[in-house]
Design a protein around this nucleic acid. Sequence first.
DNA 1: GCTGCGCTGTGATGCACCTCACAGAAGTCG
DNA 2: CGACTTCTGTGAGGTGCATCACAGCGCAGC
Lengths: 225, 225
Amino acid sequence: MPLTLATDLTEDTGFRILLERHGRAIEFASGRTIYGTGDKDSTMMLITKGRVEISRTSIDGRRSILTHLGAGDMVGELAALDGMPRSADVVAATRVQGLVLTRAQIAALLRDNPEAALGVIETLCRRLRETSAMYTAHVLADGQARLARLLLHLAEKWGEPMPDGRRRLSEKFSQSDLGDLVGLTRESVNRQIREWEQAGIVMRQGRGLVICDLAALLCVAGAAE
Amino acid sequence: MPLTLATDLTEDTGFRILLERHGRAIEFASGRTIYGTGDKDSTMMLITKGRVEISRTSIDGRRSILTHLGAGDMVGELAALDGMPRSADVVAATRVQGLVLTRAQIAALLRDNPEAALGVIETLCRRLRETSAMYTAHVLADGQARLARLLLHLAEKWGEPMPDGRRRLSEKFSQSDLGDLVGLTRESVNRQIREWEQAGIVMRQGRGLVICDLAALLCVAGAAE
DNA sequence: GCTGCGCTGTGATGCACCTCACAGAAGTCG
DNA sequence: CGACTTCTGTGAGGTGCATCACAGCGCAGC
């Protein structure tokens, strides 16, 4: 099972060329909302720099983060492909630069280039597998296992390798972000991480986190399924 | 937000015609496994009769049901479209009849008929929206709200309308099925349903369930988001 | 410098839901 | 028909995690 939610619509589908030729460059300051739930616009963006958070918020203000996407990932493709309203919020987690395509441009590409359509289908299939894997993971695994998986996933996607082979995840994610990513409170995340720290499984380094004992985390993560 | 997980790849995409012309008829007895997680075959099936359950099971035997599909729905399209191993189990919940297409047949259709590809993309987008909605619902809503939503959804998809306008859900779903559909135990489902029965929101009728006070359920369901 | 503000750490308390255990009811198959 | 399996109903007790409350810490800005 792939560990990342990153879309890569760009590989071999003609999208990359289309974007580089016709994409409109755009930039967002950290914290700015890029797309909002319910919005009816239908552009998509290739992220060229920075990191973006995709989330939903319930009536009572609780937030669920679906994923974070970064350079090379596409964001907003759903609305761009099917023309329906946005189904989640997209917020710039850092300063973000990207290239924007409109629904019309994409539709034209798909009509003219059947190969591109096949690539899109493959990407959507991958996303669907990943999302439904997230769903069952959330139903079947407890908080500890979900957090372990999350750390492994984040370390792979965002972490830097360290000289000794361990992985370092720098100061990008607050404990409450981690909580919103796995459906736990900030306090629970804190207690779990401290426990792992005491057990030597992870280490705090400044504001960053280093995964020392990858095998142990894998073991916790794999306890269910 | 649509309440059903049904795929309808058949609308206007040429699939229906292809299936009716080239699909191989097949039949499964109730309880038979149609596709198993990890299988490497890559056929898909249009269900013409009966009901199918899509689920995953964790190492320790806990089951999460993703959805039930019925006549007119496609099942197994992911593996057929992208050629990856099956990511869930598909089991016949009743006697099931269907028409089978192979990956090769689908690939040929998509190559020859760009319109079909657009239809597939739209369908996958819908599925992705629904699946990620399921995910956030599970993260943000409590068991009671999830069960309320489930009953509304099932009543709409599988229930028969009653003379007085209420909706009857007949004997298709055991309480432990309901639990596996929303991530609760059978006991919790039982207690919640009895509570609603006492409140006059639902009624047992033989093995069936009648939703008496739709508004009340909608209210419980909508408490979060 | 001081003043906030967002993040982290930690205890006390509560509750939603699980687990286990068992009994009765209802289909089902010889 | 009786034997068996599956489903339903219900209590007692446990627990994972939320909630609340508050204290310290580090950084940003005036």
